[in-house]
Design a protein around this nucleic acid. Structure first.
Lengths: 196, 196
DNA sequence: TCCTCCACTTGACATAGGAAAAGAAATACG
DNA sequence: CGTATTTCTTTTCCTATGTCAAGTGGAGGA
């Protein structure tokens, strides 16, 4: 991780909660850089999630299994986003999901213990943490609503519009299961979309 | 609202974050009692949610419309739970949901401005608020996972097992749309369940 | 260069679950 | 009370979408 600066992490923090550079640097104090190899897991189901990540470079996905035993992708984590199983992390309960690197990844990690400590010792961290959770809640809720209110085609084009790296680096079958459709259906959708 | 004590609100706060009775009472300072009549709305889509409620008595539901214009119930709020559109409330964005009382309701309300003030002046409130959001996030995520991983029948029996008042006070069509199935399908499920 | 493995597409087929309609049962109300 | 309204059930029909299986193309390894 030689030469890995905190710039993007600092940008992320200041985007969640505007603050001075000095303050933002204090917030980053307990984050440390980690490389994750393609296909490696940063979390496995039934373990308790002990680490949260800020993704500097690369893509991860979380997934679980549905009723019929099919893999279902529950989220993508691209560069510039926050990656964790917050349910397991904060509630200290066994994870029901796997989180796996799809590409080689560079990330900033913070442990549960360090986060607790920062919460209690760094006021800016406390506020950042709270707003970060609100942001994660919003993402989840917005996704739930768009699943109800948009077609799979719209959700597909929105997804790859906002996160083009997903289309480039993620197999379509993962995208399909994220959208809640079969990979064959996504193929059909893409074919239709081409006509336009 | 004569004779309405803060006991249940205080219980809720101390269950989210254990603290002394005196501390918990301080946290409740900005909450004030409001009655809500059956069928009245506490939030309408496109408005910005300015109030959060703790439900003392009664049931509310939030709903929106899907692609085909069908009403979809997105949540129930029973007595002893926290009721708000957190996405709209914290992000100050127009709500995409309606929140309506299904029965007459007694609730404790807090405005956005008062909550912000309490966040900054009452340390216990700050911590309660943070844990409350984590709790709401967890509810949403757990629901997402159970939608993937359990049958509609299991989700139905879980729901009415945990919140029996819903079965007693809520029309089945609302429960069906909450479960993501047609009301006729819920009828089929209930008929099957009776055989056991 | 060839071979193998994935990723992706395509078409045939099957089916779970929704829509519609109509009746029964329960509830509200004048 | 008796009428109207809503809730719930049940049946029939139908279609959107998933499963399965086969086939194409491209990337990487030996």
């Amino acid at each position: 991780m030689k030469g890995m600066t905190r710039d993007r992490l600092i940008d992320y923090i200041r985007q969640v909660l505007p603050m001075s550079l000095v303050q933002a640097m204090k917030v980053t104090v307990k984050f440390h850089p980690v490389p994750v190899e393609r296909n490696a897991y940063v979390l496995k189901a039934s373990a308790i999630c002990n680490t949260s990540y800020f993704v500097e470079q690369g893509v991860l996905r979380s997934y679980t299994y549905d009723l019929d035993g099919n893999e279902v992708t529950t989220a993508f984590f691209t560069s510039g986003t926050y990656c964790s199983d917050l349910l397991s992390f904060f509630k200290r309960t066994p994870a029901r999901e796997y989180i796996q690197a799809i590409t080689d990844v560079r990330a900033w990690a913070i442990s549960y213990a360090d986060m607790q400590e920062s919460f209690h010792t760094i006021p800016e961290f406390r506020e950042f943490g709270r707003l970060n959770i609100v942001g994660q809640y919003s993402l989840l809720k917005e996704r739930m609503l768009s699943n109800l209110q948009e077609t799979a085609e719209k959700r597909y084009s929105d997804l790859i519009g906002i996160y083009p790296e997903i289309l480039q680096q993620v197999p379509l079958k993962y995208i399909a299961s994220y959208l809640g459709i079969a990979d064959t259906s996504l193929s059909r959708i893409r074919k239709e979309a081409l006509k336009k």
